[in-house]
Nucleic acid binder design. Sequence first.
DNA 1: CTCCCGATAT
DNA 2: ATATCAGGAG
Length: 216
Amino acid sequence: MLNRKQIRYCLDAMAEMFPDAKGELVHSNPFELVIAVLLSAQCTDKLVNKVTAGLFKKYKTPEDYLAVTLEELEQDIKSIGLYRTKAKNIKKLCQMLLDDYDGEVPQTKEELMKLAGVGRKTANVVASIAFNEPAIAVDTHVERISKRLGISRWKDSVIEVEETLMRKVPRDEWSVTHHRMIFFGRYHCKARNPNCPECPLLELCREGQKRMKKVL
DNA sequence: CTCCCGATAT
DNA sequence: ATATCAGGAG
């Protein structure tokens, strides 16, 4: 496992590689962000942006999503995977916003997680990006990077990964760290073909060491 | 744990 | 052909 100094070194290296790392889901208000993040489950954000470009022109408010049939909403998001579940959740979520939150998106992680289709990761993203609440959303990239580098153990759950990161990273760096880890995972330490030969963290990366030995 | 699921990269 | 993609619910 990496110590604090080593983790610090990793974060600084990622900051140098991706100084402008930030959320890439296009949105213009908290409501659109919730919809976009909900749609992004098991799907690239590039594809989400392609779909929401048209979606957000047609649907502006929770009432708009409730006004159409489930089938129509399904067709509007069909090119995204898991579209039936997501369409159902969007409708439920909109009804909940109107019933329980006066049509506004709640600002705390606890309230956000009560919404249909919104789990821990989505709640963290919305709280962090839309409401500037310090948070570390552990998605597939953050989990993979954290485990490969040795910040977390392979058997750790996503909640354990999140708790470890919150313990080892200063609170005022949670949000940037979260984004830098995602960029590092998305563009460099990719799931399929990680670029270990050109990685500044190769020396302290246990998974990288293992992979380089295989190649030789 | 399984299921949901189309688009894209490899 | 198949693994992977800003996961969540039952």
